[in-house]
């Protein structure tokens, strides 16, 4: 039913998956996601829709646990047990002016439809992506094609800025760049930091939250997040939310409950970036 027409490992652990599903291909809007099940025993895994072509659509999948591993271990020509979509609210898109976009891990792919749509709407698009090392960067050519400016950050400094999206962002802002809108997709830690940075500059900021999900239709409530003190369901009210109003503390703790300790440790390792520390201290005043 849901045939995999193309699948290959873009960079270690990140897989490009193209699935034939004409309805999703026809309907998907930037910012929406699909839920996949590899087989009957699988969990339901939410994955952002990156691109559509004819009757197929493209996703990038990061191999994490068992269910994503099952999907990426399937071959071209195999069929998935279930594909539901498009789900979630489409991203807010408009003509803002100068827009900064940040993407990390699967967000490098997931930010692409937003960049393209924003560009088509006449915005000036500045894209920043991050990875641990240069060999883990992917999809750069496509992103460059829809960005006016393009920056890269790597944790080990093998390419671009040494650090994360937030480090590039701080630098740009310090250098006097002004942005009218910002969107971030990637790990929660990056999205939180970036939101903290844009907040004092009053840059409207949207983040695409990747909470744990089950049904993706608003039925279970496991994807709930607090935004401006209100409980919202990421699958139907989001996944895009105002980064300045998300209760990051709660979200990080909620996510950590399911995350492997070491993954969390990696993401929240103490930062040595001076610029970021300064940005923080400036933040609190």
């Amino acid at each position: 039913m849901y045939e995999i027409v193309e699948k290959y490992e873009e960079v270690p652990n990140v897989h490009r998956l193209v699935v034939r599903e004409p309805n999703i291909a026809a309907k998907a809007q930037p910012g929406q996601f699909a839920i996949l099940m590899a087989d009957e025993q699988s969990e339901r895994v939410p994955i952002s829709i990156v691109d559509t072509k004819d009757d197929t659509f493209t996703m990038f999948i990061l191999e994490l646990g068992i269910s994503s591993a099952k999907i990426v271990n399937m071959k071209e020509g195999d069929t998935l047990e279930a594909v539901t979509g498009p789900l979630g609210m489409p991203a807010d898109l408009g003509k803002y002016g100068r827009v900064v976009l940040g993407g990390g891990c699967y967000g490098i792919g997931a930010i692409y439809p937003l960049a393209r749509a924003l560009k088509e709407l006449g915005n000036e698009v500045v894209t920043i992506i991050e990875a641990r090392s240069d060999y883990l960067l992917y999809f750069q050519e496509e992103l460059k094609a829809v960005s006016d400016e393009f920056f890269v950050a790597t944790s080990d400094g093998t390419e671009g800025t040494n650090g994360h999206v937030q480090d590039v962002l701080v630098k740009l802002i310090r250098d006097g760049e002004r942005f009218d809108h910002a969107k971030f997709i990637g790990c929660t830690y990056m999205m939180m930091n970036c939101s903290h940075i844009t907040s004092p500059y009053r840059i409207p900021t949207k983040v695409a939250l990747n909470t744990i999900m089950l049904d993706g239709t608003g039925m279970c409530g496991c994807c709930r997040v607090s935004v401006e003190g209100e409980t919202k369901f990421a699958c139907v009210d989001g996944p895009e939310f105002d980064g300045h109003h998300v209760d990051w503390d709660e979200l990080m703790k909620r996510k950590s409950s399911y995350l492997m300790e070491e993954m969390l440790a990696y993401q929240t390792a103490p930062h040595t970036c001076k610029a970021l520390e300064k940005a923080y201290s400036g933040d609190s005043k």
Binding site: P30, I49, V50, L93, G94, Y96, P113, R116
Partner: peptide
Amino acid sequence: KPKAKSTSTRKKI
């Protein structure tokens, strides 16, 4: 969403 002030334009991917 009523709160969204931006002139939301919907685009297909």
